[in-house]
């Protein structure tokens, strides 16, 4: 199989890689670029553990081909904190104990960030439906939903104060 040469931007940095035509973006992130924060829970787009933002849109990276990253902009969990400053969602997940095993956490954080960027003041129901594509087997979602509500409030307050 001939490899595809791909140039892309991930978390603000330029990357170049060669991948096979049937390799998914998730395979490339994890196996070629060592960005293992995105997880493979199913490989069929059902669990959301591999969620990334592709040109501003929330996608399952297991359903995107690596070759499709050409010229695009990708944000993964590794780019969510600003250096040693956690994103409010990351902090609130810790404060609310919104993770147990933590395997679904990167995908849920990426998805929740995408929600809050579009809808800064979501209701509990809106959060639940937005995150319906992200499976968590440990928590029953209660503490996750509370953490997102709390993070949204803090981000809004920060904006109002600014």
């Amino acid at each position: 199989m001939a490899g595809h040469h791909v140039s892309t931007t991930i978390n603000g940095d330029a990357f170049e890689f060669v991948c096979e035509p049937d390799e998914t973006l998730l395979d490339v992130l994890r196996d070629r670029l060592s960005l293992t924060g995105s997880k493979e829970g199913c490989g069929t787009g059902d669990c959301g553990a591999c969620s990334v933002i592709l040109d501003g849109r929330l996608v399952c990276s297991c359903l995107v081909l690596g070759a499709e990253a050409e010229g695009r902009t990708i944000a993964t969990i590794e780019g969510m904190a600003d250096g040693d400053r956690l994103h409010p969602l990351q902090r609130k997940f810790l404060e609310h104990a919104a993770l147990q095993c933590g395997i679904c956490t990167p995908g849920i954080l990426v998805a929740a960030k995408a929600l809050l960027e579009k809808h800064p003041d979501p209701s509990e129901t809106e959060i639940r439906y937005w995150l319906a594509g992200n499976l968590c087997r440990c928590t029953g979602y209660d503490k996750i939903v509370r953490a997102v509500l709390d993070a949204a409030a803090e981000i809004r307050e920060g904006r109002d104060a600014a």
């Binding site: 994890r30 293992t36 956690l86």
Partner: peptide, 22 residues
């Protein structure tokens, strides 16, 4: 209810699970 010691690794993608090793 202090923060868990493995928490930051798990919200930043640094935590290494079964498939994350090479």
């Amino acid at each position: 209810r202090p923060l868990r010691p493995d928490g930051v690794d798990k919200v930043t993608g640094r935590a290494r699970f079964g498939a994350d090793m090479a």
